[in-house]
Design a protein around this nucleic acid. Structure first.
Length: 486
RNA sequence: GGCGGCAUCGCCAAGUGGUAAGGCAACGGUCUGCAAAACCGUUAUCUCCGGUUCAAAUCCGGAUGCCGCCUCCA
């Protein structure tokens, strides 16, 4: 089994061959810390988190670097708005970022450098580019000369002359070529700046990723990832300046994830339809978002809609209940597992799917089939198959975990949702329990009319009652289903 | 204007040459005092036209319709 990765550079799926046989060096573009993260950031983080988990599961020693851009025009603007220093802006939103990412169970990368911690590395890189004639100074700024790098445009596949002709490029007299981009910018008097041999100022946007990826991973390194929008100009420019400076390949595999639309519309600040991760999490369990994104191939656009999220929510519940049922049947931890070949087939297919450019949608299909297999075994009368059940359930859980799913105990998963629901409906847990108690009494005395009234009354508040030998439990009714009835 | 992508069951979504995964929803059945959950069963020939091939959702050409990027953006 070999991993294949779709490489944006070649436009093809390629066999993955790391520079070092055992190791993978992986860089993903992080965020600019000037605001809370939205679900588009979440998608990128989840996609590359999944890749990170999978590479590790395959036995690679992975060095994963994800940066923070903590100096930039937007941060400066925000610091004026919020009347705090630009450093405080960065601190504030880095904290926010971690809260969101931790909630989503995004694993921490190996290194998370901040741009301003590596100003010296950037200065060295700019100096090198000046020395080699790939950059020039103009009015306090330093620009990269794209004509000095013959491969410019190869990543984004744009013919140079047409890009200039297309001419939505800002005209700037200081630049020799309109497509030249800033490596270093002079600062205005009240802006943050660093002293350098080529004048005081602050870094251009692209230079940080070149400097930090090279520092932590060397050249070339294996995988560079980010959102599709970063292909041009960010990654094109990173590539140009790094390869021009080092005369070696910068990156072997470029990976880009697709965008998130909301209700069929592009999510953007100007339309005002951005959905923050924290707002999503106040309504749903974090794994709902992960399962939702993993249900679509990472390179395709995905349309966020309330219905899709509700569907995903139902699907996730099903997986959780499968585990509950299995554990209920297994009861004790002491039962040994006995291999089951039908499950092994699904495991193999799971890995084949993941090997095929991280086809998580297909991999998930196999997880659902395992879920079905577990449920079937739970329903079997014959207890002699329990060791098989133990085996299949373990496999089911481990593959789900590998995708970052089913991390919680069911009661934790459910209780969060129940509390959110009670709050939304303005219900007290105690009064709910009282009503359930009354119904239990009514059922005991065979007063089914009263019992049904209570069931119906609670159903109107989105609460489903489940009677079993163990007593009556309650669950939150799927919201979209509830809406259909009202 | 340039570059690129997409069109598969009611909805979401895999599938790049051999007669279509999975999820959600729906319906029938088992179970239940009634329900729910779970399980079993049922529900598609892949936008249209033409071509290549023994064979195409999958390759080629064309049409139509969506969308993204080219400017900060995950």
């Amino acid at each position: 089994m070999g991993l294949k990765i779709y490489n944006t550079f070649s436009g093809k799926k390629e066999d993955f061959q790391p520079v070092d046989e055992e190791k993978v060096k992986f860089y993903a573009c992080g965020v600019t810390v000037y605001d809370h993260c939205h679900i588009g950031h979440a998608r990128s983080a989840i996609v590359f988190d999944t890749l990170y988990r999978y590479l590790r599961a395959k036995g690679y020693d992975v060095t994963y670097v994800r940066n923070f851009t903590d100096i930039d025009d937007k941060i400066i603007r925000k610091s004026i708005e919020e009347k705090i220093s630009w450093r405080e802006v960065g601190e504030k939103y880095i904290r926010s970022f971690y809260e969101d990412m931790d909630a989503l169970r995004i694993l921490r990368p190996t290194h998370e450098p901040r741009a301003t911690e590596h100003i010296d590395d950037m200065i060295m890189l700019v100096e090198k580019l000046l020395r080699k004639g790939h950059a020039y100074q103009a009015g306090g700024d330093v620009y990269f000369s794209i004509e000095s790098f013959k491969g410019y445009g190869q990543l984004s596949k744009r013919p140079l002359d047409e890009m200039i002709a297309g001419a939505r490029v800002e005209v700037d007299d200081k630049k020799k070529n309109p497509l030249d981009f800033a490596l270093w910018k002079s600062s205005k008097p009240d802006e943050p700046s660093w002293d350098t041999p080529f004048g005081s100022g602050r870094p251009g946007w692209h230079i940080e990723c070149s400097a930090m990826s090279t520092k932590f991973l060397g050249n070339p390194f294996d995988i560079h990832g980010g959102g599709k929008d970063l292909i041009f100009p960010h990654h094109e420019n990173e590539r140009a300046q790094t390869e021009a400076a080092t005369d070696t390949t910068f990156v072997n595999y470029w990976m880009h994830n697709g965008f998130v639309n909301i209700e069929k519309e592009k999510m953007s600040k100007s339309i005002g339809n951005t959905l923050l991760i924290r707002d999503f999490l106040s309504e749903y369990h974090p794994e709902v978002l992960r399962l939702f994104f993993l249900s679509t191939h990472y390179r395709s656009p995905v349309d966020y809609s309330e219905k899709s999220i509700e569907d995903t929510n139902s699907a996730l519940h099903r997986l959780y209940y499968t585990v509950e049922r299995a554990l209920g049947k297994i009861k004790t931890k002491d039962i040994g597992a006995r291999p089951y070949s039908d499950a092994d087939v699904l495991e193999k297919e799971f890995y084949e799917a993941m090997d095929d450019d991280c086809n998580t949608a297909l991999a998930l299909a196999h997880v659902f089939e395992l879920s079905k297999m577990v449920n079937k075994m739970v329903d079997e009368e014959d207890e002699s198959n329990i060791p098989h059940l133990v085996y299949v359930n373990d496999l089911f859980l481990s593959l789900a975990n590998q995708l970052g799913l089913l991390n919680d105990e069911l009661n934790v998963f459910e209780s969060q949702e129940k509390m959110r629901h009670l709050t939304r409906e303005g219900l007290q847990l105690s009064s709910l329990e009282k009503a359930i108690g009354e119904r239990t009494e009514a059922r005991k005395s065979k007063d089914y009319q009263k019992a049904d009234e209570i069931r119906k009354m609670l159903l109107e508040k989105g609460i489903i009652l489940l009677d079993s030998q163990k007593g009556t439990e309650w669950r939150v009714k799927n919201i979209s289903a509830a809406k259909g009835e009202r």
